[in-house]
Design a protein around this nucleic acid. Structure first.
Length: 423
RNA sequence: GUGGGUGUAGCUCAGUUGGUUAGAGCGCCGGACUGUGGCUCCGGAGGCCGCGGGUUCAAGUCCCGUUACCCACCCCA
């Protein structure tokens, strides 16, 4: 058989998995401090959840989804992102009925059918949070601040990161602006690439994202939504910025920041780094989506959130030289001098573990020297030596690996003595 | 989907104009130190040289095909 993980997926071996869990713990603790509660939604949904939510014209929906028919003939799609599912779940369970709000976070794998490259996988992890039912701009600021604090807590230096923000307007001002950009593209169709010309009809705002230098040159002359926001949107955006300023979170206003999902309204943001991600640069992003729940047939319910990529965050951490210290794999190592003492050593190890101490021992009859090497490798601070002399006396030798001091301890006192040595 | 690069020991990689039993470093196991780690030294185990075909007296090395991975385009986490 083919003993290889499928294209675009990766096994997380212990060294990486430990850092992974560190990210999760960091997120859980931080998000809880801001009042967010965990939510788990299915890894797959009815395809419609994504086509309607994210938008037919987006890259995600038009070419990146893992869609299949199940045995009941339903069209099912592996989730390409988290927000759509969370909003669907909130609607299904009436979490935001009668003016209630919900603050939720999630973590798990997402799936997009793409050619893998650095920082881009077919299965990748995101952790994200959503604040539903609240239109106030203070929530926008809160969500952005949580995202930045997460990177702070991981030890990613701010100077290697930048926060971009923009406002996409709402149903009052965006359609007007959108038409204006579409007209602009048509007026300059000669100079713009084929793709951008197509965008005039499908999603004109995406033309701002085009990496073709000539296109971006021309698009830099295009009208900016910032100058055409309606009064409500302008006021909302101003408050968000004021609160970010007050929190000491610096940002760059980027009028060309559009983001690839159709559901965004008003505030959008993205965190970029400049090293470690290959040709990618975004490690997290999000925005407000005040019309999404309506799109699912629910009541008008505002919401916003962010998602951040685990793999990319880890790449950025690596590039920034951030080291996550792993816990010792063993606090006490039980070493046996000769194979005949295996049972005694086994019993001792078990007693120590029952006393709450992390213990490892050799099961394969290795030399004592080899056992010490192993103890060293595992980071054990104490080695309990089970030898014939000791056992005859009902004792064990405890060696403090840092000071190299050894003492004989009677079998009954080992857990207590070990604990003292471990501090 | 398109393009480029790379597949040799568990890992990182050498391998000269094709030429005998394919190497190094790290890691692993053992020993020097007959009951003891992190340093040093010595020894050892471990290799369908991605796969299939071709050229040749002879292929890890050249040619063709294929596959996997990596990187890039598009776009995003």
């Amino acid at each position: 058989m083919n003993a290889r993980a499928p294209k675009g997926t990766a096994d997380m071996l212990p060294e990486v998995a430990r850092t992974w869990e560190h990210l999760q713990r960091t997120a859980q603790t931080l998000f809880a401090r801001y009042g967010y509660a965990p939510v788990y939604t299915p890894l797959f949904e009815h395809t419609e959840v994504f086509t309607r939510g994210i938008g037919e014209a987006t890259d995600i929906v038009s070419k990146e989804m893992y869609t299949f028919q199940d045995k009941g003939g339903r069209s099912i799609t592996l989730r390409p992102e988290g927000t759509a599912s969370v909003v669907r779940a909130a609607l299904e369970h009436n979490l935001t009925a009668n003016g209630q709000s919900a603050k939720l976070y999630y973590a798990g794998p997402m799936f997009r059918y793409e050619r893998p490259q650095k920082g881009r996988m077919r299965q990748f992890w995101q952790i994200g949070l959503e604040a539903l039912g609240m239109p106030e701009p203070s929530l926008d600021a809160e969500v952005i601040i949580v995202l930045m604090r997460f990177f702070d807590e991981l030890g990613l230096p701010r100077e290697n990161m930048r926060l971009l923000i923009n406002s996409m307007g709402d149903e009052a001002c965006r359609p007007v602006y959108r038409d204006r950009v579409a007209s602009f593209i048509r007026e300059h169709s000669d100079g713009l690439c084929e793709e951008c010309n197509r965008r005039a009809e499908t999603n004109p705002l995406r033309a701002f994202d085009c990496k073709n230098p000539q296109c971006s040159q021309i698009m830099s002359e295009a009208p900016l939504l910032r100058d055409e926001l309606c009064d409500d949107c302008a006021a909302h955006y101003a408050t968000v910025k004021r609160l970010l300023d007050a929190a000491g979170v610096s940002y760059i206003e980027d009028p060309s920041l559009v983001r690839g999902l159709d559901y965004y309204t008003r505030t959008v943001f993205e965190v970029q780094v400049d090293a470690g991600l290959g040709s990618q640069n975004a490690i997290g992003g999000g925005g407000r989506y005040d019309r999404l729940m309506q799109e699912y047939g629910g009541p008008a319910t505002p919401g916003l959130g962010f998602a951040l990529g685990f793999e990319r965050t880890m790449l950025a951490m690596q590039a920034a030289g951030v080291i996550v210290p792993g816990p010792a794999l063993a606090e006490v190592y039980v070493a046996l001098v000769e194979p005949s003492l295996a049972d005694a050593a086994f019993t001792l190890a078990q007693e120590l573990r029952d006393a709450g101490i992390a213990v490892e021992m050799d099961h394969q009859g290795r030399s004592l020297k080899s056992q010490f090497k192993q103890a060293d490798r595992l980071g054990a601070r104490v080695v309990a030596i089970v030898g014939p002399e000791e056992i005859a006396a009902g004792e064990v030798t405890l060696r403090d690996m840092t000071t190299k001091e050894e003492s004989r301890v009677s079998l009954g006192d080992i857990a207590g003595q070990a604990r003292t040595l471990l501090g």
